[in-house]
Design a protein around this nucleic acid. Structure first.
Lengths: 148, 148
DNA sequence: GCTTGACCTCAAGTTAAGTTGAGCTTGTAG
DNA sequence: CTACAAGCTCAACTTAACTTGAGGTCAAGC
């Protein structure tokens, strides 16, 4: 149980593929954690690689850092997440992920299929994603307003 | 073939759920198009609703306006897109959409399943999305660098 | 004919997610 | 022991995607 080699920021950057500045940034945002050496340098446990991997994957599919941060709160700061932790995280996200997946599919298939659906009128178009409550907050994105 | 009621920007905003300012913005970015009345006010054809719907859906799944704009270039400015147009657009996007979908699934299932995979070492983790070349450009996001 | 609400333009502000740079400290290799 | 790569902090800049505001125009009702 000897603490398996702690990582420096540079090492984490190299192994995770994200810039050092981004790691600093994630830390400032509470997405990852480090402790400091006597000389005030960051040291990371191996679990940080896992976290970073999740962060990147989640980001690429359009989840904001804020949302990711919220989800990651459920992972105990400090230790390598257990099966339970992961289950919590994944169930916390599953719904919204499912929705995004189905939106993507709708977009992918809808673009092609919609043509056959006679939806010269947008109101009936499958793209109109009814029942969608992804709750985009902040600056952009209000919900579609047309009902029925 | 009488031109079916042209829409004002306010009407489009209402029906699409997008702010007027956003519509101006999309127009400036070349995502949508209007012609002007003698009094310099915008008038939109009904096809704009379709376009806006696509824009929003695509955005919510993490496609940038620039990418959307590029894809929409294939839709002829002016007339309501035909079956052919949509096919072009959808095939242009299909690959990247497929990748995003599979990433989402990986994220969703991976979060849970990864636990059983013994990946205390990140290198074998399914989340490490190998073979993924979504080509995120611009400010953020380098690719993961760790190989095999 | 005037008022009021929708429009118009253009500039500037905002949030997210980082990056870049300056100025200073650490730690390791020769 | 000293160079120099790697770290550290903090502030400022960047891009995307809009919003807000100021200052002015258009049109439909009374």
């Amino acid at each position: 149980m000897a603490p398996v080699t702690e990582l420096t920021v540079g090492q984490v950057a190299m192994r995770s593929g994200v810039a050092v500045s981004a790691l600093h940034f994630y830390e400032a945002r509470g997405l990852i954690r480090s402790h400091r050496t006597s000389g005030n340098q960051r040291r990371y446990g191996r679990d940080v690689l896992r976290r970073v991997a999740i962060i990147r994957v989640a980001q690429e599919v359009g989840i904001s850092l804020a949302e990711i941060a919220a989800a990651l709160q459920s992972l105990p700061e400090g230790r390598t997440p257990t099966r339970e932790d992961w289950n919590l995280l994944s169930t916390a996200w599953r719904d919204s992920l499912d929705q995004k997946i189905s939106q993507l599919k709708k977009l992918r298939d809808g673009l092609t299929d919609c043509i056959g659906c006679g939806c010269m009128s947008i109101d009936k178009c499958p793209l109109r994603n009814k029942g969608d409550r992804l709750a985009k907050q902040g600056t952009g994105a209000r919900r579609l307003v047309v009902e029925s």
